[in-house]
Design a protein around this nucleic acid. Structure first.
Lengths: 329, 329
DNA sequence: CTTCTTTTTGTAACCGGTTACATAATATCA
DNA sequence: TGATATTATGTAACCGGTTACAAAAAGAAG
């Protein structure tokens, strides 16, 4: 059953049927009722592919918003993770003729700036419930990338940090290591929290004592005090599982200054799978997050929300892949 | 850039371009090369919506497979959860002109039976890694519904049991209850495990002792021994959080036989949000899983996999919603 | 060099909607 | 009541592909 058949049954033109379906104003109530009657009677279902094809003379306009902090790193091209994720959006964007614009996510958002914007991608762990509420209030289609906020029902794409971390810990245990510590970033970033939980739970399941160290993102310059404290209180661990590759590499550098060999003395495993880790000395073992796919899927989901009405918000999490390189046994 | 423009540049007809794109045989190699040249030069990207619309004289044929155990309950229409989930698939199936068939998931699967099938939905907690491996081996597009297997990378749709359970526990605590026990089903069903984890973690975060009781699905007839044991060893709890609504209702019935009032003496909260709970006495407080949406999304994802090439496997989890009714304070 | 086959290429209809524009019907007002 | 503004409806082109069918070109056989 298509709109042509409906039009015939209702004895109107296809344009009128289309108008009724899109609740356009210029239809007399008598005609509208007549058409609706037929639509109900034959249980008309619109073909989304046709709709999409036909209505797409106007490109979809999407905002990719990132926090000032991340934007800075993006500009410097020093944040490989988010750069790659954002590059990943391009596949989907091109295929669907949507234009994207990267903009800074300000704290006081302005509805005016969003004129003509069809949807927004909020990228990164700095996204808060406040941001989300703002966009939900104005009914703007929204997808969070690499952040999850349990208290707000909103679509998001994250990596499966829990199972990734769990895999790393199990792997290290299988290689005979028991003193495994975890160095992590801010736990209000879901990605870090998830990996933290996975590490902790898996350690406990194996009757090992979890030992975690929070590492402040901003004072990345010097990890010595942290390692120093770890050695003094906990002793020298057999392995370090880090929240991400950057922390892992920083840890290896710091260990080197303590004359500790990696992986002979301590195995180190990172998370993210950025390219840089491959060329590090020693090459970094890591859990690879499919970054391009993350961006690509996020944009796809956003388009689904923009075009299909009443889609139910979901959390999408991507599997990670363990890549063993030289930094771990 | 569309195929018409490509055709013009390559000085051939659009049909020829289409043939090259679909690697049809009847194109001379000279023409093929010429067209491919232009395609590469202008970085042609096919519009998936148009392709889909144009080529859709052939319907997609999908299998919805359920275990014998669940199928039995489906036939009896006594498994409201899976019935609703499967009904939910119909929206998406209709909209996309795909035909679905509900079949039993046998232990020894036969490749012959899958002739002409474009994709498979495996529904329920009985799905194992073996099943998944079979389908992956023969390259059959696959989505798991209400089951997640961390060790196999395959698409799946589940409810967010962790946060749901966490919400329930926090709610009960906020109402002043502290002695909260959890009655759960088989933990090899991810849904139950997830809720279990959420309950346990949240109890611990609030410095309360988690207390869990496994309830065997098959011996649903009598919960008295379980409750009896609970009362004798642990004492009378202030609240029971159950793995699903059926267990919750069974618990309430059993409590009644012990002359214990719900919610005055014990608050009970279920999980799933089946209709039956609404008309139970007392009406059941629960965490509602959007069952229709679960089916609908699963089929949508399956179609995405069938039509778009190389989609990366993901886990999709749906938010639950707490519904307060009479069975809890 | 015809004639018949086979292969390659082009034409045009089609998928199921949207929408610019034209036209018909109705409302408003002098 | 006739002229004009407004609203309701219809017509036909269009979105970007696929594909049945027709036509042209190339190859084979007599």
């Amino acid at each position: 059953m298509n709109i042509r058949e409906i039009a015939k049954k209702a004895d109107v033109s296809i344009a009128t049927v289309s108008r009724v379906l899109n609740s356009s104003e210029n239809v007399s109530s008598a005609t509208r009722e007549k058409v609706l009657e037929i639509l109900r009677k034959y249980e008309f279902e619109m073909d989304p592919w046709a709709k999409r094809l036909a209505s797409k003379r106007n490109k979809t306009h999407l905002f990719i918003m990132v926090s000032r902090r991340i934007l800075k790193f993006l500009d410097l091209e020093s944040n490989e993770f988010y750069s790659t994720v954002i590059n990943g959006t391009r596949n989907t964007a091109d295929m669907n003729r949507s234009v994207t614009e990267i903009v800074e996510m300000e704290s006081n958002l302005d509805e005016e700036k969003l004129k003509g914007v069809d949807g927004v991608l909020l990228v990164g762990g700095d996204t808060t419930a406040e941001h989300v509420r703002f966009f939900k209030k104005i009914g703007m289609p929204l997808v969070l990338v690499d952040q999850y906020i349990p208290t707000v029902k909103v679509d998001c794409i994250v990596s499966n940090g829990y199972d990734g971390a769990s895999y790393a810990v199990k792997y290290l245990i299988s290689r005979g290591l028991k003193k495994i510590v975890h160095i992590h970033g801010f736990l209000n970033h879901f990605g870090f929290k998830d990996r933290y939980d996975g590490y902790k739970a898996t350690m406990e399941q194996n009757n090992l004592l979890p030992k975690t160290y929070e590492y402040n993102d901003e004072v990345m310059e010097d990890m010595k005090p942290l390692i120093d404290k770890m050695f003094n209180v906990y002793g020298v661990p057999e392995a370090i599982f880090a929240s991400n590759d950057l922390i892992a590499m920083k840890a290896i550098e710091t260990l080197r200054s303590f004359h500790i060999r990696v992986p002979e003395d301590i195995s180190v495993i990172g998370f993210d799978g950025i390219e840089k880790g491959k060329y590090f000395t020693p090459p970094l073992s890591t859990l690879k997050v499919p970054m391009r796919e993350m961006g690509s899927l996020a944009l796809k989901r956003l388009l689904d929300i923009v075009y299909d009405q009443d889609v139910y918000p979901v959390r999408i999490s991507l599997f990670t892949e363990f890549i063993k390189r030289g930094s771990s046994v």
